[in-house]
Design a protein around this nucleic acid. Structure first.
Length: 415
DNA sequence: TCGTATT
């Protein structure tokens, strides 16, 4: 049925409304398909915009890859289709090199030329910062481990490139696990400074304590009809209020007397708006704050089951989601996020405003670095508006968040 | 500065 050396392909940039039966005709022209599966969220069944494809014949896969990968764009997509061996096919890590101490001006092509003599290169990417300047390092993936090893043997420490401070580094790239560990350490170091909750609760004066507790109670009350995630946020607030009672210090940088508007204001907004005037003043909050943070990235599925009277409504919501993205007006765009923020942190930041369908920081594909913007989708426009009202202009460090409605998909289409 | 996703 399938050749033993068949290749499982990953197919990306598929419109989310296309199912297996719609995709089949596109791929069948390259050969008989053994298996084609649209990738869906394990819990919600949401179409993830990609698929796995295995042809009976290895040759069909190679043909499809060269004919389609980056070659054409499916209707409604703004990037070309991806057709390449699935991650599971390669294990990649034992043939992927990290190259350090490059000169800043060297391009992908320059690096490729340097490594070409050692074998066939699958990928070659110089890492670049948000402004496009080289970070002086690159990833080079060979087809085999032996080729990669040969490149290390010959090139590592072999020379010092112009503009580099020491000799060329050529080593196997970190594995997924090593990378995860490294990231965790970074997060742990910076949590107290940058996490929105820590930012606001990590340290504050006795002056705000009563306010905190009151707001926590208000949020808790709201959360009864908002979402379990909001409840979690409220619990965190109460947790932090308790920590405060244990004698932490804070530095108000702006008088918060402005927080007594004549008209009644949504307490959720107050909870955030009233707190943005405080900044963490001491580093020791990390150990207290950090345990509150690890949170499951999945939103809908991992929440505890709602009380019976909410279940029907919840099911309706999930069915709506399956049909597609949140409707226009429910999705917000956030810019000027701190570099360190991940999906989890923006989720934390916006969950007090309603039921979050998704929270996504845009990450550079090549570097895994945040591009400092992201999206949060709510299940209703009012939540999105509340989030914008409360969080647009919210100061984090030296920057202010820009929070606005995500442009509708057809925004730049002429008429 | 507007959704890159890996059973």
């Amino acid at each position: 049925m399938k050749e033993p050396d068949a290749i499982k392909l990953f197919v990306g940039q598929i419109p989310r409304h296309l199912e297996e039966k719609d995709l089949k005709p596109i791929f069948e022209q390259f050969g008989r398909i053994f298996e084609l599966t649209v990738i869906k969220d394990k819990y919600t069944g949401l179409h993830k915009g990609c698929a796995f494809l295995t042809y009976c014949a290895r040759d069909s896969a190679l043909k499809a890859q060269s004919a389609l990968h980056e070659q054409k764009t499916l209707p409604g997509m703004n990037r070309p289709i991806q057709v390449k061996p699935a991650d599971s096919e390669s294990r990649g890590e034992d043939r992927k090199l990290f190259v350090g101490m490059l000169g800043k001006q060297q391009t992908d092509e320059d690096v490729r030329k340097m490594f070409e003599p050692f074998g066939t290169i699958d990928e070659c990417t110089v890492l670049r910062g948000p402004d496009g300047t080289s970070k002086g390092c690159a990833f080079v993936k060979f087809q085999t481990h032996a080729e990669a090893q040969a490149a290390i043997n010959t090139l590592h420490s072999s020379r010092t490139l112009p503009g580099a401070s020491s000799s060329l580094v050529v080593k196997f790239a970190d594995t997924e696990k090593e990378r995860g560990l490294r990231r965790m350490q970074q997060v742990a170091t910076q949590l107290g400074m940058f996490s929105p909750i820590a930012l606001q609760f990590g340290a504050y004066s006795a002056y705000t304590q009563a306010l905190m507790q009151q707001q926590a109670a208000l949020v808790a009350a709201h959360s009864a009809y908002l979402s379990p995630m909001a409840t979690m946020a409220a619990v965190q607030m109460q947790h932090m209020a308790a920590i405060n009672a244990n004698g932490l210090i804070a530095t108000p940088i702006t008088p918060s007397s402005a927080q007594s508007p004549a008209a009644p204001v949504d307490p959720l907004q107050q909870a955030y708006a009233g707190m943005q005037h405080y900044t963490a003043a001491y580093p020791a909050a990390y150990s207290l704050v950090a345990p509150a943070f690890p949170q499951p990235p999945a939103l809908v599925a991992q929440q505890p089951p709602p009380p019976p009277q909410q279940q029907q409504q919840q099911q309706q919501q999930q069915q709506q989601q399956r049909e597609g993205e949140s409707p226009d007006g429910c999705n917000i765009f956030i810019y000027h996020l701190p570099q360190e923020f991940t999906d989890s942190e923006i989720l934390q930041m916006f969950v007090p405003f309603g039921h979050v369908i998704s929270a996504k920081v845009f990450v550079d594909r090549a570097t895994n670095q945040s591009k400092c913007f992201g999206f949060v989708s709510f299940d209703n426009p009012a939540s999105a508006q509340a989030a914008i009202q409360a969080m647009n202009g919210f100061q984090i460090g030296m920057k202010r968040l820009k929070v606005q409605l995500k442009r509708p998909k057809d925004a730049n289409r002429p008429y």
